[in-house]
Design a protein around this nucleic acid. Structure first.
Lengths: 194, 194
DNA sequence: GTCTATAAAGGGATAGAC
DNA sequence: GTCTATCCCTTTATAGAC
């Protein structure tokens, strides 16, 4: 589709998403009004509806987009040793948590703000992400390099532990990304009995 | 204070808190209206204001009450071996997560819905709870029975991991409380290098 | 593409009767 | 202790001008 010269569609669209992501993450979906989003973008409320059919779609698009990005970016290699794969997963998850904290935070906090249909859809993507980890743990057990009492629980426990990073990590804080990864790797390696 | 015969104050008060806790946990503070709470209790909206000055105080009281209950119920004995103390903490935290899932869920999800003053106050209680765990980990390191790369991070990681239980545990599900504790204990013991 | 204006509904909170 | 009625404000979303 040709772009009208001087059109701001290509810029306002992302701005709306950015503002929504930031405000939803900070205050929660229900606590944020379309007026607040508009104010942050620098437009009037009515304008938002040129970019989203409604508020709910705005949230659903953010979560779906994030989960799809995650799944597309994650590269696993079943041929490698399970411990190496686990280390890669940990790096990947923490890197994402640090680079896109708002999207990560939103994706696990605001599932309940979705309509049932949207929630089903995004919960499916989320489950696929959890399965990426569970697959690695299963491989480790099969290899004999990991000792895990319950695959499903270990997966949930590790995901919860890793996702917690968004609750305290701050740029310029005591620890940089590399050190956080190193510390979590030691904890995770121990947890999986390696 | 004498109780008027036939007074329902002693019953309606708790009912309001129960309804608010349940609805806030399910839908989020901002998404719940005073009218919804009243409907769940079985009274009209105006009645709620005989039991709380406003909606914000209702949330703050729930969170403060829960954190105070937690801190009052937790019994630690610095004389015992650190690993035993850690096991007790794990049992305590998981038992609470299973017995009062709504309060636990609320307390880590809705801190951001508090006014700054309320948030400060409850964050302080929360930090005291985290310190209960951190103290045990420090003792384990001093004893030489635990090997932990970073005390603060390990504390945050373990709390996040344990609190995640409320996200998937269901009564009558695949695992009962005892088995959940056993599985998490294996994971945690490994994570702390024991 | 963005604005203004407005409709229609629902929000928190209070007053006063019973 | 509870209800009814109401105030006043904000909400989402739409229509139509520019």
């Amino acid at each position: 589709m040709a772009r009208t010269q001087g059109s701001k569609a290509v810029i306002t669209g992302p701005l709306v998403r950015d503002a929504a992501r930031s405000l939803f993450a900070r205050h929660g979906y229900s606590a944020v009004s379309m007026r607040q989003i508009a104010a942050q973008v620098g437009v009037q409320v009515g304008t938002l509806y040129a970019y989203t059919p409604d508020k709910q779609a705005l949230l659903a698009d953010l979560l779906r987009g994030h989960m799809q990005d995650l799944l597309a970016a994650w590269q696993d290699d079943p041929a490698r040793p399970a411990l190496e794969r686990l280390h890669s997963f940990l790096r990947f998850h923490i890197a994402t948590s640090i680079e896109r904290p708002e999207a990560v935070f939103l994706s696990y906090m605001e599932l309940r703000s979705l309509t049932p249909e949207n929630r089903r859809q995004i919960a499916t993507l989320r489950r696929r992400y959890e399965e990426a980890l569970e697959t690695i743990l299963a491989a480790g057990v099969a290899e004999g390099t990991m000792h895990i009492p319950d695959l499903r629980l270990a997966t949930m426990a590790l995901i919860a532990m890793l996702t917690g990073v968004v609750n305290w990590y701050r740029d310029g804080g005591r620890l940089d990304q590399e050190r956080v990864v190193a510390i979590y790797w030691e904890l995770v390696r121990g947890a999986v009995g390696a």
